[in-house]
Computed example of a mutant assay.
Amino acid sequence: MSTVTVTLVQVDGQEVVIDDAPLGESLMEVARSRGVDGILGDCGGGCACATCHVYVDPAWEDAVGKPDEIEEMTLDMVSHVTRDNSRLSCQIRISPDLDGLRVTVAPSD
């Protein structure tokens, strides 16, 4: 397996199913290359801007894991929309364990 399927739900509720997400890329890179609304990745994946903020579906929280300390500090910049299942998609690496992953793009305001 060299790709997996991931689903991103945009802020407007539209689902974008990506059935060829390459292993090893970040979820942010995959989403940006497919034009997913709301995934900007302004810092290029450096965990510095929170413009790739997503909510991980509860069924996938264990597989994705929790943010590290640096990611938590970056998420603090958007604390008004942060939830317990918040992650930065630039910090989620596509792996075989994430086949079927579902996330919702967080609002930017």
Rank of each mutant, 00 (worst) to 15 (best):
I18V: 07
L23V: 15
E72V: 12
V105W: 05
S79Y: 09
R102A: 12
D84V: 03
H80I: 11
V6N: 02
A106D: 01
G46F: 03
T5S: 13
C43G: 04
H80T: 13
H80K: 11
L88N: 05
M77N: 12
D99M: 03
D42C: 11
D99C: 00
T5L: 04
C90Q: 02
G38K: 05
A59S: 12
S79A: 14
G100S: 02
G13I: 04
Y55M: 01
Q91C: 11
L8R: 07
L8Q: 03
R34K: 15
S108P: 03
G44S: 06
L88C: 08
P58E: 10
D97K: 13
A48G: 13
G24S: 06
R93Q: 13
E61L: 09
V36R: 00
A63D: 09
T104K: 13
S2L: 12
M1V: 12
S95T: 15
L8D: 03
A106N: 02
E29D: 14
C49W: 04
L98M: 00
T7W: 00
D20L: 05
V78L: 11
S26H: 02
L23T: 10
D62S: 13
G41L: 08
A63S: 10
G45I: 08
L101T: 00
E15V: 00
A106G: 10
I92L: 08
V30I: 10
R87E: 01
V17I: 15
L23D: 07
E71C: 07
R83C: 05
H53K: 00
T104Y: 05
C43W: 03
C52K: 07
V54A: 07
G35Q: 08
C49S: 08
D37S: 14
D84E: 14
Q91K: 09
M28T: 06
C52N: 09
C43F: 06
K66S: 14
P67Y: 09
D84I: 04
M77T: 14
